[in-house]
Design a protein around this nucleic acid. Structure first.
Lengths: 113, 113
DNA sequence: TTTAGATTTAACCATGTGGTTGAATATATC
DNA sequence: GATATATTCAACCACATGGTTAAATCTAAA
């Protein structure tokens, strides 16, 4: 079953709302890593990291590649584009409005010392 | 107490992870609105909307302006910049790596039919 | 085929989330 | 002051989240 755009955004933003998960994404920037490697720097259990990876995977922020007994986890930067697009679209939209508002306030408030 | 950058991102992304809250942000793009106005199109209670607004406020995605018995809620687009900056920073970083990876794969896989 | 290593699953726990309803708290108006 | 309107707060509920430990699964290697 294909996720709706809405669900997709739900999952992406939810995945990004946890500092451990953002940290994992940062760690994966350098290169792909195994689950064990990813977990090492953190003080929580491997099972906890495994859960975090599942959340990141549901959001499609990461991909996995099985390699024998272990597996490599790597980023899927395409997905971040989805979030960024949402944000920048609305930001632009809002900034236009905001600018109109600022102009209004300038007229009302004046710049007279 | 001032929020850390990390907590700030936690709150912003968490706020954005709910479809009702994203919808509210969209609605506020047109103009500032009262709580009642915001709530009207939704089928949930006013109290539920009030809670959502609190989440958006904690993330500083909205501001409030008291005006007698009611109050006006408006966007704070500056905050979205924080999220966008995080995303675009890492996206750019990752895309560089990804491009390097793609080049590698091309070399390995070749383009020979 | 046992054994060791890598990872996930299951069961559990405390706390958070998103909703409800009903009472409480302003504030404007009569 | 009494009353209607706008909004929040409190208590509650079902379910999700983020963590734990222990058992299960899969693979590699002895």
């Amino acid at each position: 079953m294909v996720k709706s755009k809405t669900q997709e955004l739900d999952h992406i933003f939810h995945a990004l709302s946890d500092p451990t998960r953002r940290s994992i994404l940062r760690d994966l920037g350098k290169r792909e890593k195994t689950v064990g490697e990813i977990a090492r720097p953190y003080r929580m259990s491997l099972a906890a990291i495994s859960k975090h990876l599942k959340v990141l995977e549901l959001a499609r922020l990461i991909d996995r590649r099985k390699a024998g007994s272990h597996q490599f986890v790597r980023l899927n930067p395409e997905t971040l584009k989805t979030a960024e697009e949402w944000i920048s679209y609305y930001e632009q939209f809002w900034n236009e409005r905001l600018e109109a508002l600022r102009n209004l306030l300038e007229i009302e408030g004046g710049t007279d010392g």
